[in-house]
Write a protein that binds this DNA or RNA. Structure first.
Length: 506
RNA sequence: GCCGCGUUGGUCAAGGGGUUAAGACGCCUCCCUUUCACGGAGGAAUCACGGGUUCGAAUCCCGUACGUGGUACCA
């Protein structure tokens, strides 16, 4: 059996959305599970849609997700080039081969003629007429033009495309690894363009040729490609490569809250749709990514993997290694899945709790630094991370949840304190400061004892005092156990914050 | 319109002829905690509809509805 080789073939036209990342992931998982190769090939045959920076962006995303290709424009490999625009010549030869064998033909129709054809044939029942067998005899193509006419047109450098000649009344079927047998009536499929007037292939020709040349064994792509599968199947056959044809799997779509997940409208949904921030160079419009939103790549990969796949067990949290181990294409769902941002956040929360602190620090530290916090040494920072991580859903939550450890609060939740603040309490806290100073060692239990003893002595309810102390140290009613916070920030800072707060409360 | 693919709680889903139809997210109640979380115990909520086949259908078949994708010299 030949080696497993799968490819992800993005076109550099913009951000990498959820569905795209999941497609890469499944490709990657399948390849790794079977000890095969994962190839990234750039499909840029439509130069008019090419967006500067999009290629680099795609690789940045793959890198962040931990999906390293074995072969690509960046990583090299034996089947270079991996950019379709650089493989232009080979496609032309194959297209001509198809014409000579009678499986394809030259079409000289201009854009206007095509438009006219669509306009003339448009009816209520047929709003989108196709260039198919019912119509091709009426068009300007080598199917009914004489040889001399064709040669003449070619000699005059008339613009032409090469179209596949779809056969009549054939059932074209194949077995999809996810959905089983799928079949089409060839009569209903149109004569797709294979080679464009600019000499570039269309996707249809390019995938087949490249998959063959790159020895791809399994072709996994989005469900939107299912309707054009018969064209690809025929091409494999007409080119004489039927035996080498890869196994297909058409992955289900990821849907937004109301139907199709549109690429650009992250803001509309209130959650990201791209892996990483994407700024369209033409419009300068920024679409926020999962990375910048505060997602861990581990969580992002995890949530995408189980959106449309499960291994039949109750496990939901998977590392990349576990995914590679458990993944199988036949357990991928047939139906599309609606993306649920609440569940996505749950995955992130779980991963924040699950990840070891040192690893987590690598993600958290830059975020805190970017917010201008003055951070202590790593081991002190780790203690804080350990203390607050269970209440952080997104990495960006660390700013609020951990920030007060590194910065004296300058505002207080006065509303929470006001009803409970009076001269007695003020007196209490002033005495508390001196008691704290007298402590042999400033630990949370020593402090707690001193705190409670003084409360009993003054006959004040401990609970109320604790709430006030919390607001004094944190600024608001949040965070881990108060005395632990005090111990963490130290004696001097604790006293400083108490005295600071007393002034503010008055 | 035509073609393809789908349809199990609000969402992700297990189950593929006999089940009290798992589990997770979210929601609600309670416990823990005089903060917020975490954790724990419960709860509400589902087989799109109509026909068949069968002793028996969420499960198999056929229709219908709905959703979604395609119908470009875009991928």
């Amino acid at each position: 059996m030949s080696k497993v080789r799968v490819r992800f073939a993005p076109s550099p036209t913009g951000g990498l959305h959820l569905g795209g990342v999941r497609t890469v992931l499944y490709n990657y998982l399948y390849a790794k599970k079977h000890g095969g190769d994962f190839i990234v090939r750039i499909e840029d045959t439509d130069q008019t849609r090419f967006v500067t920076g999009a290629e680099e962006y795609i690789f940045d995303c793959l890198n962040w997700c931990g999906l390293k290709p074995d072969e690509s424009i960046l990583h090299g490999g034996p089947y270079a080039p991996y950019r379709q625009s650089e493989r232009k010549e080979s496609y032309t030869a194959y297209a001509k081969q198809l014409v000579e064998a009678g499986y394809a033909y030259y079409a000289f129709d201009t854009k206007e003629e095509l438009e006219k054809m669509r306009e003339d044939n448009k009816t209520a029942e047929n709003p989108a007429p196709q260039y198919d067998q019912s119509i091709r005899q009426k068009m300007r193509n080598s199917l009914h033009l004489t040889d001399t006419e064709v040669k003449d047109l070619l000699a005059k450098n008339t613009a032409y495309v090469i179209r596949i000649k779809m056969p009549a009344n054939e059932v074209i079927s194949f077995t999809d690894m996810i959905r089983g047998e799928v079949s089409f009536d060839s009569t209903l499929v149109d004569d797709k363009v294979l080679l464009k007037a600019d000499g570039m292939p269309t996707y249809h020709l390019a995938v087949v040729v490249d998959d063959y040349l790159m020895k791809i064994s399994h072709a996994f792509r989005g469900e939107e490609w299912l309707p054009s599968a018969p064209v690809h199947l025929l091409l494999w056959k007409y080119l004489g490569w039927e035996k080498q044809m890869p196994q297909w799997a058409h992955l289900p779509l990821i849907m937004g809250p109301n139907g199709k997940l549109s690429k650009r409208d992250g803001a509309k949904y209130g959650f990201p749709v791209f892996a990483m921030n994407w700024t369209d160079p033409k419009t300068n419009e920024l679409v926020e990514g999962f990375k910048e939103k505060g997602f861990l790549p581990e969580a992002f990969i995890n949530l995408l993997a189980v959106l449309g796949w499960n291994d039949g067990t109750e496990q939901e949290l998977y590392s990349m290694e576990e995914l590679i181990e458990s993944f199988s294409m036949d357990r991928v769902h047939v139906a599309g899945a609606k993306f649920d941002y609440e569940k996505a956040k749950w995955f992130n929360h779980e991963w924040i709790k699950k990840l070891d602190t040192e690893h987590l620090r690598g993600y958290v530290k830059p975020i805190l630094l970017a917010d201008n916090f003055v951070l202590p040494d790593d081991s002190s920072l780790d203690k804080v991370i350990e203390l607050v991580k269970e209440r952080c859903v997104l990495l960006t939550d660390f700013v609020q949840q951990a920030g007060f450890f590194f910065k004296t609060p300058d505002t207080f939740d006065i509303d929470a304190v006001k009803p409970k603040w009076d001269a007695t309490k003020k007196d209490y806290f002033e005495i508390l400061c001196s008691h704290l100073n007298a402590l042999p060692e400033f630990t949370f239990s020593n402090m707690e004892n001193a705190f409670k003893e003084l409360a009993t002595e003054k006959n004040i309810k401990v609970g109320e005092l604790q709430m006030i102390l919390r607001v004094m140290l944190v600024g608001s009613k949040m965070g881990p156990a108060v005395f632990t916070i005090a111990e963490t920030i130290g004696l001097d800072e604790t006293i400083k914050r108490i005295q600071n707060a007393i002034i503010s409360f008055d």
